[in-house]
Amino acid sequence: MILVLTSCAGLHQDQVRFDRLTDCPQQTAADLMAQAHEIGSSSENLVLECALTVLRDTADAAAIRSALGGRIALLLAEREVNPEKREKLAAEGVRFAEAALAHGGNEDGAVHYYLAANLGLAVREHLTLAVENLDRLENGMKRALALSPAIDHGGPLRLLGALYLQAPPWPQGIGDLDKALELLKKAVADYPEHPINRLFYAQALWHDGSDASMDQARAEFAMGKKLLAEGQWGYSKAAWEKEFAAFAQEFMETD
């Protein structure tokens, strides 16, 4: 318990309150586990909020040990426009994943993936806290990559590569452009259908700065936009469009 509390230092500890819980269906954690494959980016907010509420109070060992709570918290956090609520949801996702690890979920790559993904989102806007958690983010993504590289269309490759791209370099941090390029190139090669793999690889190529890299960055960016426009990405699509637009502005201004 001391380790769990220490690992959460600096993160929000209170939960986001949901408004429409009277509309929730009668369901148990076992029901949610049986339907887990149906919960994703196309799920409506109310569905996710109802599910998270059930998992908050459950004593079901299988549900606690699973990655489901962390995944639902991340889905809600990524959609949340209020920064404080977003960080609270992500911090709750970290706690779900920590509970899963404490109850025997250490060999589940998804648990490690959603712990690191939620942690990254929770500390993203707080530089000191982000730097303090660099090693934990790196180790979590490495563990997820070793156990479940295919989760979320190459999510561990994508997020570990992005971490090396965005983190400060040695000696202040773990930033490493070469590692970022290697991982994100592999993410695109192995999971070419995901638009964010393309966007992150384009960002790494842009940071590389050579003429050949800039040409390839433009091609990856264009393909990512095409995949985003044509694919079925549910509620994630709007947030990803903003990421593409933000990079386009920066890329075009510099170019």
Rank of each mutant, 00 (worst) to 15 (best):
E87G: 09
E193T: 12
E78S: 07
L157V: 05
A90N: 04
V131M: 14
S43K: 07
N133I: 03
A122G: 05
D23M: 14
M1R: 12
G69F: 11
P169T: 07
A51Q: 09
E243Q: 15
R56I: 06
A29P: 07
A30E: 10
E243W: 07
K142W: 00
D208C: 12
R86F: 02
A116Q: 00
N118W: 04
L137D: 06
D190I: 01
Q26R: 15
E132L: 13
Q249D: 12
P195W: 09
A91K: 01
A9R: 13
E182Y: 13
E241G: 03
H207S: 14
E138M: 11
I39H: 03
L74E: 04
L127N: 06
V123R: 01
E132T: 12
A162S: 13
E250D: 05
Q232R: 09
D14N: 13
V4I: 12
L32H: 11
D178E: 15
A246Q: 09
E98K: 10
E80Q: 13
S236M: 08
A62E: 15
W233N: 03
L119Q: 01
K142Q: 10
A73G: 01
H12R: 10
A59S: 15
L52R: 06
A245S: 09
A162N: 14
V47Y: 13
F96L: 08
A144W: 07
E107M: 14
R124E: 15
V4F: 04
Q172E: 12
D152M: 07
L74C: 03
L68Q: 11
C8V: 12
D211K: 08
G140T: 05
A99K: 12
H153L: 08
A167G: 05
A219C: 02
A162E: 13
E138F: 06
D190C: 03
Y164F: 11
D135Y: 06
P149S: 06
L134M: 13
